[in-house]
Structures are given as structure tokens and as C-alpha cells.
């Protein structure tokens, strides 16, 4: 694959120092052409060699790709599903040789662990949870949190996993009254967990005791907020939110991500910074990923936009490739690689610098 340079066009807002660039380094071609839904990276140990592998998810197939020759990827395992389609891959930090996926149509109906038998290396899957699942997140220390609804009751459950993908331990967290939309870990605080809710509250739990510590109302913010990252500094809680329902304003353009700061003690909070699209770019947040100080989003226009959260502005744009809109983006675990996928199942790996 010949490297290709994709740089931001000549736009006033980004016409400054510190422009980012994206260089295509590798492609994963999907011969089946079935609809692609997600991608992620994970560690996989095959015959004693631990590699950072790529997991791709199409509607009814999940595949694991191992690095082969330079810039080439070899498919080594495939799991098939017949009844319920795959919705997303659930990355769980610190886990090797275990893939977690959420299956369902519009909402999650099942969470499954995918693994290989240690005897004959054949692909296996284990059903971990079924029901009306609203939100799920992989946590550090081999844990996975999910919220589900049965009749009027909401259940928030943390599962801890054994090596074979089985659920070793279950713990319940005190649920808020309103439906949880997303979860987020607080960096460096393994015992704390955040959730965003359907009525725009941010809730904080103690994962060790299951206590619901605080409910913080961010009602002045936009609806359907997703929390991508959270960290605590100087007694304050900083969160990076995305706003799928945000509308363009004359003063600041189209906001895609927002940095908010909240005082967990008083629940007072305020927006610190809006990360907007450069002038001339249209579209709202569709899907995205935040890692360290980099945020990437697929916009409704089909373009991928990247922000440096420290610089505070958009640093790169990746327009639709071969007339096909982008469907999803993920940062890889190392060296600022961006995985961008299209509906036809092809995944493109870019190096961001």
C-alpha cells in the first residue's frame, strides 16, 4: 500500500502552527463486503508471542487480525453469529486473548465473551448477560459494567472475569432513577465510575462499595451527552463530553466535543471549552473516540475530524475515501494510530503526527 498524505485544506481556523497530518500506513480489506460495525485493538498471545492485534466486527462476523509482514495483517480467528447481529466491540483494558462484544438490533440484547479453546485453538463464545441492556463499558482490573432495565427497575452490575472469559464475581451498584446512557472511568481513580443519564445528569459511584455518591445536573448542556474521558485534578472533575444533538451557533460554530469542569462536592459545574468544526465544515457528532489529548469524531457529513484537546482546535480532517463516508474511528493503543472504518468492511490505519 503506497503511503498517502492527507492534510487539512487551507482553512483559516487551522491555518496556524501545529497542524496534524494523517498518513495511511495499512489497509484491512474485507472480502465478504458485509456491513462493518466496529474496530478495536487488543493483545493476543498466539504460541507464546504476544501481539497487539486488530479486532473487526461486521454484523454477523468478528475477526481477529495479527500483524504479519510490514504493514500487512493476517486474519487468524473468526467468530460467527447467526441470530443476533453485533453492535459493538467492548474493549476491556489489561485483558489478553478475550474479546467482548455487545449484540442486538437497536439496543443491546446480549454481551458475549469470545475466546479460543486452549486445546484445539477453535473459536468459542460465552453468553455473559442477556436482557434489555442500556449501557456497557470495559473497566480496568478485568471488569465490565453494564446497566439493564427489567420492568421499572434499573440494574447496574459490575462483572469480574476469569482467564477463561467466565464471570468470576458480580457486584451491584446503586442505580439512579433515570436511565443511564453511558459510563466512563475516572483516570487514575480505579474505585470511581461516572455515568451520564437520559435527563443530562452525571452520576458518580464508588465501585468498591456500590454507593451512588453524587448526581450532578448539567441540564444547561446539550441532550444525549456522551462522556468520553474523565480525570480529577485539584479537587475538581474534568470531563470530555460529546454532543450528538448540538446545533451550530453563530458565535462558536458547530460544537462536537466539550470540556466541562465540575466540583463533585458542590455539584456546581461549568463548560470550559467547546471543540468546534472549522468554518466551512458542516456536520454533527456521529461517533468518536478520545485518547490522551486527542479526540476523533465521525461527522454526519461522513468526514473524520481530529482535535488536539490541549491546543483547543481541529488539527486534521479526513474526507470520505473513494466516495464512501467513514462509519467509525478508534485510536489504537500505541503511537497515535487511527483506525477508520467504512460500511463495506474495509479498515484503514492512519498514522497521526
Amino acid at each position: 500500500q503506497s503511503p498517502e498524505q492527507t492534510e487539512i485544506a487551507d482553512r483559516p481556523v487551522c491555518d496556524s502552527l501545529n497542524l496534524g497530518s494523517l498518513q495511511l500506513v495499512s489497509t484491512l480489506k474485507n472480502p465478504s463486503g458485509s456491513c462493518s460495525v466496529d474496530v478495536n485493538v487488543m493483545w493476543w498471545d498466539e504460541a507464546g508471542f504476544k501481539d497487539l492485534c486488530i479486532v473487526t466486527a461486521c454484523e454477523y462476523v468478528v475477526s481477529l487480525w495479527k500483524p504479519a509482514d510490514p504493514c500487512q495483517w493476517e486474519k487468524i480467528h473468526t467468530w460467527h453469529f447467526t441470530e443476533v447481529p453485533v453492535l459493538q466491540i467492548i474493549p476491556v483494558p489489561d485483558v489478553c486473548n478475550l474479546v467482548f462484544v455487545a449484540l442486538g438490533n437497536l439496543e443491546i440484547r446480549e454481551i458475549r465473551a469470545l475466546l479460543c479453546s486452549s486445546d484445539d485453538k477453535s473459536e468459542k463464545q460465552k453468553l455473559l448477560k442477556s436482557g434489555n441492556i442500556k449501557a456497557v463499558l470495559g473497566l480496568s482490573e478485568r471488569r465490565l459494567v453494564n446497566s439493564s432495565r427489567a420492568l421499572c427497575d434499573q440494574q447496574v452490575e459490575v462483572m469480574t472475569f476469569a482467564e477463561d472469559g467466565g464471570s468470576k464475581e458480580k457486584q451491584f451498584l446503586m442505580p439512579p432513577e433515570e436511565t443511564i446512557l453511558t459510563f466512563a472511568e475516572v483516570q487514575g481513580m480505579q474505585e470511581s465510575l461516572l455515568g451520564t443519564t437520559a435527563v443530562n445528569n452525571v452520576v458518580i459511584w464508588n465501585l468498591k462499595t456500590g454507593q451512588l455518591l453524587k448526581k450532578i445536573c448539567i441540564a444547561d448542556s446539550y441532550q444525549a451527552t456522551v462522556c468520553h474521558k474523565a480525570y480529577s485534578e485539584a479537587g475538581l472533575l474534568f470531563v470530555i463530553l460529546s454532543h450528538p444533538c448540538a446545533k451550530e451557533t453563530e458565535s462558536s460554530g458547530s460544537p462536537v466535543f466539550q470540556l466541562m469542569v465540575m466540583n463533585p462536592k458542590t455539584t456546581l459545574n461549568v463548560g470550559v471549552m467547546l471543540y468546534c468544526l472549522p468554518p466551512g465544515q458542516a456536520g454533527r457528532f456521529l461517533e468518536g473516540d478520545v485518547k490522551d489529548h486527542l479526540a476523533a469524531a465521525v461527522l454526519t457529513s461522513g468526514t473524520v475530524a481530529i482535535w488536539d484537546l490541549l491546543l483547543g482546535h481541529c488539527t486534521a480532517l479526513l474526507p470520505p475515501r473513494s466516495d464512501q463516508n467513514w462509519s467509525f474511528v478508534k485510536w489504537s493503543g500505541t503511537e497515535s494510530h487511527l483506525l477508520a472504518g467504512q460500511k463495506d468492511g474495509n479498515i484503514y490505519i492512519y498514522h497521526y503526527s
Partner: peptide
């Protein structure tokens, strides 16, 4: 905005909220 707009801050907010919250 200034930090003062957010009210009194505690570096041990997590421990303090855990001791105040319902078990």
C-alpha cells in the same frame, strides 16, 4: 469562569462523599 464559581473544593472529595453517602 474562576475556580471560586464552583464553590469550596476538596482534594479528598471521593473519600468524603463516600463517607457521607448512603451505604
Amino acid at each position: 469562569c474562576s475556580k471560586a464559581d464552583l464553590g469550596p473544593v476538596s482534594l479528598n472529595w471521593f473519600e468524603e462523599l463516600s463517607s457521607e453517602a448512603a451505604p
